[in-house]
Design a protein around this nucleic acid. Structure first.
Lengths: 209, 209
DNA sequence: GTTTAAATGAACGGCTCCGTTCAAATTGTC
DNA sequence: GACAATTTGAACGGAGCCGTTCATTTAAAC
């Protein structure tokens, strides 16, 4: 289907390697320096590409930004295959999941990405929405399903899995999330304490009986 | 002490009304459009002031931004006098506190402010740090003290008030915090459910016995 | 009224940047 | 090799903006 369409155009085809080099360079610049402070010329230099090529491919600075966001969201969708659920007691499993989520969300690139998306959301609400759908909402649904499953098996007793999912993740991130966003870096020990504390409180509220 | 110093200078004094008009206008522009996208000329127009006056007062675009951040942080420090603790059962009090915090934090101006501070923190970590100290860390300390007090009176049983404070606030904000940051607006009903849920889980974990 | 300093308006230099144009070079496909 | 489309480099117009200069006006304090 797609291959049939590819063969239509005569002449030199667009260089997809260059295209993704452009998006990569753009992502780096945009999410490090912000939309307004990033210049197309700089992106072109980073990608070893002519500025005109960028305009041929994307036409617009905003469109390039959108493409960068789209790629990053796509990455997120890919990364988040928590399908391999861990073994062990429910307490152990919650701990592992909490740590996995935490590791995923506290990566500096992720913090950077979130900062920029939030900032640009002010002018382009659609961007924030796309991010929510590709990331947080997806994750919440998946985790809620896990909780519902555990609840059905009698390992937990959760009346509202969606709410419970939020509560667990929120506690695990705790204030560390906020601190990272504003440049402070919690110690590894604090991180552990937050996750362990989240598991404790969560089980106190939702363990059967 | 200060009045004595005031009388020192002869000639026309600097117009403090204009000064605060400048800071107000700058705050609005900076926190709506970001640092890079805000022009001094526009701020000058908003404040009905000459551009040169701004440079006389602040000398620099960054300094003006710093002044705007400082003022906003000062406002936060002022607003946050949760000294009047509510009456009623511990459950009722937690509910009231949760709603007060929530109302304070979910105001659109606050969301906007946080977005911008986070974005600028990338280049100026000191700004993020100043915000953390003026806002979140202050609030956390105050709330933890409340919890410790209630714990000492036997109304709660909390081994680690600082951690517990984080947990409660994090659950009360839940994912709504994140959603607002990315442009989605949770319904009033969702907000209520999150606060009520936070109180439930919190008490399940930390009620005496 | 005199003094002293702040505020204003206009203009400027210098810089950055977006987006476009054009001719020339490159590179795939038939 | 001929075709057709992309890529490149350079240059340009136009715009916006920072920060400064300067002569002029305004206004408080003595």
């Amino acid at each position: 289907m797609e291959k049939a369409l590819k063969k239509k155009k005569p002449g030199r085809p667009t260089d997809q390697v260059k295209r993704s080099a452009i998006i990569d360079a753009a992502s780096r610049r945009f999410f490090e320096e912000g939309f307004a402070s990033t210049s197309i010329e700089q992106v072109a230099a980073d990608a070893s590409v002519s500025k005109v090529t960028i305009y041929n491919h994307f036409g617009d600075k905003r469109a390039l930004f959108a493409a960068a966001v789209e790629q990053e969201c796509e990455k997120m969708r890919g990364y988040f295959n928590l399908s391999e659920m861990p073994e062990g007691s429910i307490r152990e499993r919650l701990n592992v999941i909490g740590e996995a989520m935490f590791a995923f969300l506290s990566r500096p690139e992720m913090v950077q990405f979130e900062r920029r998306i939030a900032a640009e959301t002010e002018h382009e609400p659609a961007i924030g929405h796309a991010f929510l759908q590709a990331g947080p909402w997806r994750m919440k649904a998946a985790f809620a399903e896990f909780l519902a499953h555990a609840s059905a098996k009698g390992e937990l007793n959760i009346p509202d899995p969606l709410l419970a999912a939020e509560q667990f993740v929120s506690m695990a991130k705790g204030m560390g999330d906020l601190e990272r966003r504003f440049g402070a870096t919690p110690t590894e020990e604090e991180n552990e304490r937050r996750i362990a504390g989240a598991v404790d409180v969560f089980l106190a509220a939702y363990a059967p009986r």
